[in-house]
């Protein structure tokens, strides 16, 4: 999997690279419009992560050019501008997703995986982790071939954890992923705790292990260490 990151903030680009590299993705970073156009002309990428505001151009133009030549590349816009018109324009010209800065790396990873999944194995997906198997196209989760009966939020939660498996996923990022970032729910972490508790119980009851590890104060991690 090759990913091109177009981001003028070097530090942010390096964070993204370092997070995504652990997923065995090959990441390349460019920090301006000219380099980005050049790279796109020369090579093929599976996905493009692009900032709209670049020192020498507009990220939207990169997307337009890319769509003309290599229409099957997945595109995620990352922008500091949270304006609806930008979002609509970006999605209109062919971007797959739009993330507003500052975002959680785990959220970016989740959106990226979802795009790649949609593009590469249409209708034939399976995500596995230890005894857990998820069929995203059918919203089904199995543990040892026993189907789990999950609520929508529990499903979103296990999906999010599996995509970011073996990583610490923060409570804040999960809460935003589940309830959206418009919600100023101070006590949503308590609700999150309850969801985790229920999910653990359902997985264990179906024959799985306690894969969801609590990371002190920070959040949770899906792992097979225990």
């Amino acid at each position: 999997m090759k990913i091109l990151i177009v981001e003028d903030e070097k530090e942010l680009a390096s964070s993204i690279t370092s997070y995504l590299s652990q997923e065995k993705y090959i990441c390349e970073c460019v920090n301006n419009f000219a380099f980005a156009s050049e790279k796109i002309d020369l090579y093929n990428y599976d996905c493009l992560i692009v900032d709209i505001i670049l020192p020498d151009g507009n990220g939207l133009d990169i997307i337009k050019n890319l769509k003309k030549t290599k229409a099957d590349t997945g595109i995620i816009i990352i922008s500091a501008r949270n304006s609806l018109s930008d979002k609509i324009t970006g999605l209109d010209i062919g971007a797959d997703d739009y993330l507003t800065k500052p975002f959680h790396l785990s959220e970016l990873n989740s959106r990226l995986k979802s795009i790649i999944r949609r593009r590469s194995f249409a209708g034939n997906n399976e995500i596995n982790f230890e005894k857990i198997k998820i069929l995203p196209d059918f919203n089904q989760v199995f543990v040892d071939n026993t189907e789990l009966v999950l609520t929508k939020k529990e499903y979103d939660l296990i999906m999010y954890l599996i995509i970011n498996k073996n990583r610490v996923v923060t409570k804040e990022s999960i809460a935003e992923h589940l309830w959206g970032d418009n919600i100023d729910m101070v006590d949503s972490y308590d609700f999150l705790y309850n969801h985790i508790k229920n999910l653990r119980k359902k997985i264990i009851d179906a024959g799985g292990d306690n894969y969801i590890e609590t990371v002190y104060k920070m959040g949770y991690r899906l792992s097979n260490n225990n």
């Binding site: 997070y19 500091a80 501008r81 507003t100 800065k101 990371v215």
Partner: peptide
């Protein structure tokens, strides 16, 4: 307004992503 939000969000994004990486470096 737009610039301020842009200029503030970007450093925040850097801090946030670095912290997230720090957490991973167990």
């Amino acid at each position: 307004t737009e610039n301020a939000s842009h200029e503030i969000q970007t450093p925040l994004a850097i801090i946030k992503s670095k912290l997230e990486l720090l957490i991973q470096s167990l």
